[in-house]
Amino acid sequence: MEEQQRNERNKYSIIVPTYNERLNIALLVYLIFKHLKKNVIPLSALFRNVDFEIIIVDDGSPDGTQEVVKQLQQVYGEDHILLRARPKKLGLGTAYSHGLRHASGNFVVIMDADLSHHPKYLPSFIKKQMETGASIVTGTRYVSGGGVHGWNLMRKLTSRGANVLAQTLLWPGVSDLTGSFRLYRKSVLEEVISSCVSKGYVFQMEMIVRASRKGYHIEEVPITFVDRVYGSSKLGGSEIVEYLKGLAYLLVTT
């Protein structure tokens, strides 16, 4: 009962950066509502009254993403779906900062719009935070119950290599450094994000490593990651070089 009351006082701002996600964003919003408003898991009583808002930070998508979001606002209400667009592509880190400025919740969830992060895991993030009082709950693909689909052998090899390197050099205490499905206490995200300078894959790693160094309580929940349903994602040589540079930067600055 006490947990339920505490949950009712909490508000979760879900920040979703988008660029050309016309198809995915509608599906994502539908699934978020499905899993937070009409919960299907056994702990439904605990989550039935989750107060949340979805903040969509669109970087001037030319495919009509913003028009779809405006239609979604008419369906679900402008208090639940906030469109905070920017004129052009300005990067992931600043997209979170931009969304954060408009967040009214005391907790912030960041997730991708491409459905690689399934909203069905949101209740487990909330439950884990409530059980442990953690400042950050991060989704991990590399533990029992988690997993990845859609990666070829080379991508898996790159991922494992990058992970072993980071774990050996940084000792972060978190199994999935580059995942971007996380729940933060708002004040913690504000503090951590202000100290991060990296971009791309390294940005997520920098966030969690800096949070870990600052001594914040970090918990993990297993998630599955299904690589892009619509659209394409790639990991090339330049991303690997950026990753290694980021690793070296974190090694000397944290």
Binding site: G147, H149, G161, T224, F225
Partner: peptide
């Protein structure tokens, strides 16, 4: 570590 990680890489085709 990379080899073991690769062999035990969790996948989720059912998802």
């Amino acid at each position: 570590m990379v080899g073991v990680g690769l062999m035990r890489f969790p996948t989720c085709p059912q998802e």
